[in-house]
Design a protein around this nucleic acid. Structure first.
Length: 461
RNA sequence: GACCCUUUCAUCUAGUGGCCAAGGAUAUUACGUUUUCAACGUAAAAACAGAGGUUCAAAUCCUUUAGGGGUCGCCA
């Protein structure tokens, strides 16, 4: 059985980089009928936030990622970690280090001055004398000193790091609380993880965790290190880019399926295919197809995908989603008709709401260029005749409105634009929008007449 | 600075020694369609980071240079 996990630290919103690795883990578990577990990394008690956890769960819920079993909190497992620490101490695989923070700082400074990689020098590794007074020791683990620490990464292949790069790192702070690399190894083991998929900013943590695995005799899971997502300039994606928080996408009118499709293709591919449903992803996803290099975030493609998913969503579904964007659904029959003629032209739900309002609300101003272009010659007269005609014809569907337009054009021997353009500006305020016949069918004769009257009085001023 | 990872069109990518004078998608440009703007359709332009090797044959393997990213905490 494949068991994967997502293990955020609750320090803020859910970052789309995190969402992507969570998605990969989730897909891999679902494809293999395995389990996807959620663990909260809150060992640093000074930096906890319930809101942050809630934000993560909310985002998961929005995109449709579900986790199996209870959420595991590291802060509630300190007893377990302590017993493992004691075990290592008893077996001589870990030791107490009485070095003060100041001493550590000095050591680092002198190493850096020599151009060396800063690391602990092992001075208490075999210490058996009298410990200095008044110092609460930290616990350090004995790391392998010679040779190499190697592992096979499922994405990047063989990773080989000299043992001298990994020092005897701290597994318990002087206050007794355990540290990240230690608890991760224990929890990943105890949760039965088979496949650990995470960002490649963790690549250097893996050898440290392997030290713990080996000291405790645990079997190693398979590791996959996914390259980072950069911003459009190729730099690391940060808060300042305004694209990092997953829930911002909801607020900005993106559909979760578009975001999922976008994120999954950012770094993973399946031949030439671009559009993937969740079902297809579960069937096709394989972490060995994840690319090795960092990818740049590209908003255009996300917009394209979002437009695609909007276009292919049912009108009912869109109407429900549009509630958050100020479109009320009281008049749902008409709204559904409006959505039907506008959804092809929107890239986001915000766009779609705007398109809808364009039709629902009578124009309060008119685009100047459009006015100039449309109202030349006898445009007003043509509009008047057209409206008079409508009152006689009383069209009841789109086709009938079209015929009404045609009859004016034929009798006056003019081009379609001579009527269409002024009519469009009168009804919508600008030279844009869906076909006039569809719009008129929704507005009805009375509303058309009133909007034509409005533009006439506007023109007189 | 040290160490690790990485490098195909502007961007996401296909590519696992011959099917590649490198394919798809987005973006761009042109044309078509439309009363308009989109959407849509057709087409164009656009890349193997550089240098050496190995091989009958290299985008693919090796070496090296350069660029980009990451890590060096009693943070996670």
């Amino acid at each position: 059985m494949i068991i994967t996990r997502f293990a955020p630290s609750p320090t803020g919103y859910l970052h789309i980089g995190g969402l992507r690795t969570a998605l990969y883990s989730w897909l891999w578990a679902r494809k293999n009928s395995g389990k996807f577990l959620l663990r909260i990394e809150d060992t640093d008690l000074s930096r906890n936030s319930d809101e942050a956890l809630e934000a993560i769960l909310k985002a998961f819920n929005w995109v449709g990622l579900d986790h199996d079993g209870e959420v595991l909190y590291q802060s509630k497992r300190f007893d377990i970690y302590k017993s493992y620490i004691q075990k290592l101490l008893d077996e001589g695989k870990a030791y107490k280090c009485y070095m003060s923070k100041d001493e550590l700082d000095d050591l680092r400074a002198s190493q850096e001055a020599k151009g060396e990689r800063p690391r602990y020098d092992g001075r208490y590794r075999d210490f058996s004398g009298t410990p200095p007074e008044g110092v609460n020791p930290v616990i350090r683990i004995k790391a392998q000193q010679d040779g190499f620490i190697e592992f096979e990464d499922g994405i990047k292949g063989k990773i080989k790091i000299a043992a001298s790069e990994v020092d005897d790192f701290i597994i318990a702070r002087s206050d007794g609380t355990p540290t990240y690399n230690f608890v991760v190894a224990i929890d990943d083991y105890e949760m039965g993880l088979t496949d650990v998929i995470r960002g490649d900013d963790h690549l250097y943590n893996t050898p440290k965790q392997i030290v713990v695995y080996e000291a405790l005799g645990f079997k190693l899971p398979k590791f996959y290190h996914v390259a980072m997502i950069n911003n459009e300039k190729g730099k690391k994606l940060s808060k300042r880019d305004g694209a990092a928080d997953a829930m911002d996408y909801k607020r900005n009118g993106y559909l979760p399926e578009a975001l999922i499709n976008f994120l999954v293709r950012l770094g993973w591919s399946h031949g030439d295919q671009e559009i993937f449903s969740i079902e297809e992803l579960i069937e096709l996803f394989d972490p060995s197809n994840i690319g090795k290099s960092a990818s740049s975030y590209n908003l255009d493609k996300l917009l394209w995908l979002n437009a695609h998913y909007i276009k292919n969503s049912s009108n009912d579904k869109l109407l429900a989603l549009l509630k958050d964007f100020g479109i009320d659904s009281d008049n749902s029959d008409i709204m559904l008709d409006i959505i039907d003629i506008t959804k092809d032209r929107a890239k986001t739900l915000v766009d779609l709401a705007n398109e809808i309002n364009f039709i629902v609300k009578a124009p309060t101003s008119y685009d100047e260029k459009a006015l100039k272009k449309a109202f030349k010659g006898d445009a007003v007269e043509i509009l008047d005749d057209f409206v008079a005609n409508l009152e006689l014809d009383k069209p009841t569907n789109k086709e009938a409105y079209h015929k009404s337009m045609e009859s004016i054009i034929e009798s006056k021997e003019i081009g379609f634009g001579k009527l269409g353009q002024p009519l469009r500006v009168a009804l919508l305020g600008a030279m844009r929008g869906p076909g006039m016949d569809s719009v008129m069918d929704i507005l009805g004769v009375d509303e058309i007449k009133s909007r034509v009257e409005s533009i006439k009085s506007f023109l007189k001023r």
